[in-house]
Amino acid sequence: MKTPLHRILAIDDTPANLLALDGLLSNEFDLQFATSGPTGIALALKCPPDLILLDVMMPEIDGFETFKLLAAQPMLKAIPVVFVTALNDFDAEVAGLSLGAADFITKPINATIARQRIRNLIERKREQDALQQALQEKVALLKEVHHRVKNNLQVIASLLRMEGKGSEHSHTQAVLNDMQGRIRAMALLHESIYQNGTFAWVDLASYLKKVATQVFVSLAVSPSLIRLQLQLDELQVSLDQAMPCGMLVSELISNAFKHGFPDGRSGEVCIELRPLEDGAMWQLRVSDNGIGLPDNFESAVQHSLGLQLASSLASQMGGRLDVGPGAAFTVQFKVEPTTLPT
């Protein structure tokens, strides 16, 4: 099967010039003709060409004006336009190129050069279209993946919730609730990524705020008894650091709410994120003014998955979890560069 010829629309007010173009190009291209800008545009809208040859010197609406009209048409603005001018009309050439013309051909037209220029431009346009389409497919794919991630997180959360409600053991229920909390911290990170529109970095302060608020609300902490105090400086971190950081905060404040304030005790849980003096290191601190840590805290850690997780998450962030004085947990960490690996 023969591939169809590329279609070229030639706009020129002088029929003799159009006839000349026909003689030069018609054996390689499918040519259409118009003798004024407006009729050319009407023709192009009906049947979009691959390229437009546009004479500069035309009465009433000249080539430049026609070009502007073409560029204002969403359907036509991507079509490459080649101006045809008299030889050595440098001013016209500059004006046309600065408007965004694809190229220039000077009269008298050299058929070999003109044909090659047109071939190159059409090929470039074809490549551009292919790229554009590939990009659109990737965007659609990314959207689909995002949808599936969140939907699957929802399925997991739903399963845990139903298992929890089905269980008669309070310990099992507590474990399943903790698991939902951890999934929530991960889900919020996904939310943050898509709100930023970038995978390169996450606004850590706003992410931690969401995590903390969610834990607070989901554990049904009474705001009149326990206050959540947030002192978070602005910081952009990579996804690799944000994820452990969010989960760490989720573990530590769940712990504080659950164990720090028994029997209706009141107080506050404080989360602090700030740079250290030299600026290269940052500090995350979660503390509360509840009853304090138990005397056997060291051995209690052995039995608490949450605290063991907290410790590994801190080292995943590139820091170490320090305990004390009092019910305070501190991680100092170096902020990793937030550019995407190539």
Binding site: K143, H146, H147, R148, K150, N151, L153, Q154, I156, A157, R161, Q180, I183, R184, A187, H190, E191, Y194, Q195, G197, Q214, V217, S218, A220
Partner: peptide, 28 residues
């Protein structure tokens, strides 16, 4: 499950919903 998809949000608004819940959602 689409958080920040302006196209669907605009279309969704036309149906005048009485609420909008983003997945995954939790009890509260």
């Amino acid at each position: 499950a689409f958080a920040n998809d302006s196209d669907s949000l605009t279309r969704a608004a036309l149906a005048a919903p009485v609420g909008y819940l983003s997945k995954p959602f939790f009890d509260h």
